[in-house]
Design a protein around this nucleic acid. Structure first.
Lengths: 220, 220
DNA sequence: TGTACATCAGTGAACGCGCGTTCACTGATGTAC
DNA sequence: TGTACATCAGTGAACGCGCGTTCACTGATGTAC
């Protein structure tokens, strides 16, 4: 099974793969995207990477380590996506915050396999310290954003920024979990998940005393 | 392996089990509670029920059917819990609504195995119509409650009750998923999940123009 | 530029395992008479 | 009350399967000289 080195659809493969670690991560993502996280097996990932079943163990201690690597990268990508959406609060914190929320959902929608690897697998963050760290960093961003937002409120009416961050995270995650899965199409929605989240965050901010004005028009 | 029929810790078992269907459901719940939904197997459930590996197939077509039965019962129990919390909007819709939210979380916390069977398994509701129906009924309750709440608002400021129900459901589910799992203890919280949800719903209602007054005091 | 060699990424066969499911069977239960 | 029998819930052995992981090995790569 040696494919031509420079021609055809299959680029690779002499004896050495050359980039097996990456190929396994990609195969795992594809597998999860197609059949859900419970369908992941090392053997199948190896098969898709075009490699014998023992090969992955040169790169990952065991099956969970591969899964954890995928989840880790997912958190890193999420953090990057959130950071670039937040843009340090520009043009203004409130609208940047809306963008942040949309970015969260966009990530869940456009990278469902990463999302599933992060939140729907058997691996526990506490068993994989880098995972916990990456998750904390992503959440930290949300927390900082909340800090900036609540700073607009007079101190006596200012809610803990941690609480606000948790609320928004939970709402985003809830919407993503319930409505953004392509495989098991959940309850159909009268509006896009992003709009649902934006409306929810807007109402929440109004509840805090921010982003005043009349209630938003009916969306649907 | 015939245990005494009336003595000792083990009550059951002549040749017939007598209540195997129930025993399998319970074994499945215990299994999920202990090791997570991915650890469920028919063989292990049969073992825990004290029965040979083929026996479950007298009661369930296959492994998924057993899992779907557990999820179905979960939705029915959730619906019952929500209905009894809502109490048809008494004493008043807004405070009954708070109680409803707490009941949702209480369910996720006190019945984590049911909750996992409902939301974290491979089974898809569309493949099991009764499951979809039960899920719709539970959500319908939330929707009715939202209807009653939004009725307090003047029509020109009244948001779609469906949207409100979706927001609250997503927030509740998000909090439950992120913070109410006993097995994989997630991020630690500065407050109880129930209080986090209550504060969130309160702020949301204020954003809608209900439950006015000053912002709640800091919770933590 | 050429050669020897260390390194190490992959091979492929093998292992033991537990699973889902089937099937001919057995024995308990309860109904008809 | 007693007996024959249909029913059907469980048995237990068996099947084929795919998995995770190991291991002695092979062959490609790149470095030292």
């Amino acid at each position: 099974m040696t494919w031509s080195r420079h021609g055809g659809a299959f680029e690779r493969r002499g004896y050495h793969h050359g980039n097996l670690r990456e190929a396994l991560v990609e195969a795992t993502l594809a597998l999860i995207a197609e059949k859900g996280p419970s369908a992941f097996t090392v053997a199948e990932a190896a098969r898709r990477a075009g490699v014998s079943p023992g090969a992955p163990y040169r790169h990952f201690r065991d099956a969970d380590a591969l899964l954890a690597e995928v989840a880790l990268r997912g958190f890193e990508r999420l953090e990057a996506a959130l950071a670039s959406a937040w843009r340090d609060g520009r043009p203004d914190p409130v609208s940047a915050f809306e963008t942040l929320g949309r970015a969260y959902l966009a990530f869940a929608r456009s990278e469902p396999a990463y999302y599933a690897a992060m939140f729907e697998t058997r691996i526990a963050a506490e068993d994989h310290p880098p995972l916990a760290t990456a998750s904390d960093r992503a959440f930290g961003l949300l927390r900082q954003a909340a800090e900036r937002i609540t700073a607009f409120l007079p101190p006596e009416n200012r809610p803990p920024s941690l609480m606000m961050a948790l609320h928004v995270w939970a709402l985003s995650h809830g919407i993503a979990s319930l409505f953004c899965r392509p495989d098991r199409a959940r309850r159909s929605l009268p509006m896009a998940p992003e709009d649902l989240l934006e409306a929810g965050v807007l109402l929440y901010l109004r509840g805090l005393g921010l982003a005043g004005g009349p209630p938003p028009a009916k969306e649907s």
